[in-house]
Nucleic acid binder design. Structure first.
Length: 293
DNA sequence: ATAGGCGCCTGCTGGC
DNA sequence: TGCCAGCAGGCGCCTA
């Protein structure tokens, strides 16, 4: 569910609620999420103070005063919220952290249980985890040469490349579709076949779309809420995602849906041509790298 | 080595 | 009203 803008919103919401607070008690409901909870983690968290909260890709990193790092992934339906302790505990709440401010709790809730939490001993072991999982750079201010190299070596379609967290961390299904629309590129085009100009357009489109979504506090389709329990607003401004059959906001053609890389992909068949004929005609002597058709 | 497919879970929606 | 198929923001494992 939550992609970079949603996770960023959670982090920004949680900071004023949690920084400086000390964890007093950890309640573990269902231990077996995607990452099983280790009993020692409970002991290691008690009496630790929360120093900072940050985001890396779709991961939330809570830094504790003794150097430990509590990391949270929201999967598809995860919610990490600072909630009034008096509020009723909703179904599918799997972790509750009591704080020294007894009026508020940090709660983790996840209907589908694709998310999870883990505790790392220090920054170094957390960094090692991110490296070993191949987590790519943040999608802001990407080095254009890195971007072109990653696209140029990929024989798969653009949609698959955008979803690949080792290329850039944080883009998911919604914002991949929205970025491809913004860049006027067909999701099924082969990444290696892009011209330099097209690659640059896509790189900038990803930033544009993510920034716009952060300003709107992310997209709430069903489960997503920010760290204070508030829904996002970006779902009202989708140009293509979940708009199959509705008119393209640019040209009015009906939006189409296609299954790519195992995910549904939404695009405008008129604005996002699978063959960019104009790009080819501008390079008469160049290699015809039309790997898609 | 890469890339695609499937499974993990639960809940909701739409068609019959 | 009920049943069932299909679908959903992610990701890791398996296979070809």
């Amino acid at each position: 569910m939550p992609e970079l803008p949603e996770v960023e919103t959670v982090v920004r919401d949680l900071r004023p609620l949690l920084i400086g607070r000390r964890i007093r008690r950890v309640w573990v409901g269902r231990p077996a999420l995607r990452t099983p909870w280790k009993a020692v983690w409970t002991r290691r968290l008690v009496d630790r103070r929360i120093e900072t909260i940050r985001r890396r890709g779709k991961w939330i990193v809570v830094e504790l005063d003794d150097g430990q790092r509590l990391v949270v992934h929201l999967g598809m339906t995860g919610q990490l919220t600072g909630t009034p302790a008096a509020a009723p505990i909703e179904d599918h709440t799997h972790r509750i952290f009591d704080l020294d401010d007894a009026s508020i709790q940090l709660r983790f809730r996840d209907v589908r249980r694709f998310g999870g939490l883990a505790l790392f001993a220090d920054e170094k072991s957390l960094a090692g985890f991110f490296v070993s999982s191949g987590l790519g750079p943040e999608p802001f201010g990407l080095d254009p040469y890195y971007w072109r190299r990653r696209l140029g070596s990929a024989k798969r379609c653009l949609k698959a490349v955008l979803l690949d967290q080792t290329v850039a961390a944080g883009v998911g299904n919604i914002y991949a579709d929205e970025a491809l629309f913004e860049a006027r590129l067909h999701p099924g085009r082969i990444a290696a076949a892009l011209s330099a100009a097209e690659a640059g357009r896509l790189r900038r489109a990803v930033e544009t779309v993510l920034n716009r979504a952060i300003e709107r506090r992310g997209s709430s389709i069903r489960n997503y809420v920010g760290g204070s329990g508030l829904r996002g607003e970006m779902q009202n401004e989708f140009r293509v995602y979940s708009r199959t059959g509705q008119p393209c906001p640019r040209c009015g053609a009906p939006i189409e849906r296609l299954r790519l890389a195992g995910r549904s992909s939404h695009f405008c068949p008129a604005c996002q041509k699978s063959c960019q004929l104009s790009a080819i005609s501008r390079r008469p002597g160049g290699r015809q790298r039309m790997a898609d058709s």
